[in-house]
Simulated scan of single mutants.
Amino acid sequence: MAEKVRLDKWLWAARFFKTRSIAIAAIDAGHINLNGERVKPARGVTVGDSLRIHAPHGNFEVEVLGLSEQRRSAELARSLYSETERSAEKRKLDQFAKALEPQFDHPHVRGRPTKKWRRKLDALDVHNPNNS
């Protein structure tokens, strides 16, 4: 019988998620597919399984190369899986597209706008009837 590790523990050990509870929440939300199926957190992962992972830092398609129940260094975590070339290219394109998206945040504004900044925003608002 092949050795198995819980999916939530493996995702945490491979450093896709910062905590096991975040990994469990992602699995329950359907962001993780094991061999093309939606699974539960306690499902066993074996070497050779394929995973599709939708994490906050990107979408990954990986093949499991090793098993671990303990969180180790990032170098050891990367040795637990192999990302497909298609997945790596798609993530690079997504990062490039995100870098090209316009940023509507003012770099000096945190929280509520100041009175001065609010007046500047109101001056730009052409659809505001109070602005005339």
Score class of each variant (00 low, 15 high):
residue 1 M to R: 08
residue 2 A to D: 15
residue 2 A to M: 14
residue 3 E to P: 06
residue 3 E to W: 02
residue 5 V to T: 09
residue 5 V to K: 00
residue 8 D to I: 06
residue 8 D to P: 08
residue 9 K to V: 09
residue 13 A to R: 01
residue 14 A to C: 02
residue 15 R to M: 11
residue 17 F to E: 09
residue 19 T to P: 10
residue 19 T to A: 06
residue 19 T to D: 08
residue 20 R to I: 01
residue 21 S to C: 03
residue 23 A to C: 06
residue 24 I to K: 03
residue 24 I to V: 12
residue 25 A to L: 06
residue 26 A to T: 03
residue 28 D to G: 05
residue 28 D to H: 10
residue 29 A to T: 01
residue 30 G to Q: 05
residue 33 N to I: 07
residue 33 N to D: 06
residue 34 L to E: 04
residue 34 L to T: 03
residue 34 L to V: 10
residue 36 G to P: 07
residue 36 G to I: 11
residue 37 E to H: 14
residue 39 V to D: 09
residue 40 K to H: 10
residue 43 R to Y: 06
residue 44 G to N: 05
residue 45 V to S: 03
residue 45 V to I: 12
residue 46 T to P: 01
residue 46 T to I: 14
residue 46 T to W: 00
residue 46 T to R: 11
residue 47 V to T: 14
residue 48 G to V: 04
residue 52 R to W: 04
residue 56 P to C: 08
residue 56 P to D: 15
residue 57 H to I: 11
residue 57 H to N: 15
residue 59 N to H: 11
residue 60 F to T: 01
residue 61 E to P: 02
residue 61 E to G: 09
residue 62 V to Y: 02
residue 62 V to S: 01
residue 63 E to I: 11
residue 63 E to P: 02
residue 64 V to T: 04
residue 68 S to T: 03
residue 68 S to D: 08
residue 69 E to Y: 03
residue 70 Q to C: 02
residue 73 S to C: 06
residue 75 E to W: 01
residue 75 E to L: 03
residue 75 E to K: 07
residue 75 E to F: 02
residue 77 A to C: 11
residue 80 L to D: 00
residue 82 S to T: 01
residue 84 T to A: 13
residue 88 A to I: 14
residue 88 A to F: 09
residue 88 A to P: 11
residue 89 E to H: 04
residue 92 K to W: 06
residue 92 K to N: 08
residue 92 K to G: 06
residue 92 K to F: 07
residue 93 L to G: 10
residue 95 Q to Y: 02
residue 95 Q to M: 06
residue 99 A to P: 03
residue 99 A to E: 14
residue 99 A to T: 11
residue 99 A to N: 12
residue 100 L to E: 09
residue 101 E to S: 10
residue 102 P to H: 03
residue 103 Q to W: 00
residue 106 H to P: 04
residue 106 H to A: 08
residue 116 K to C: 00
residue 117 W to Q: 14
residue 118 R to I: 09
residue 121 L to A: 15
residue 121 L to K: 05
residue 122 D to G: 10
residue 123 A to L: 15
residue 123 A to M: 14
residue 128 N to F: 15
residue 129 P to A: 13
residue 132 S to N: 13
residue 132 S to W: 13
residue 132 S to P: 08
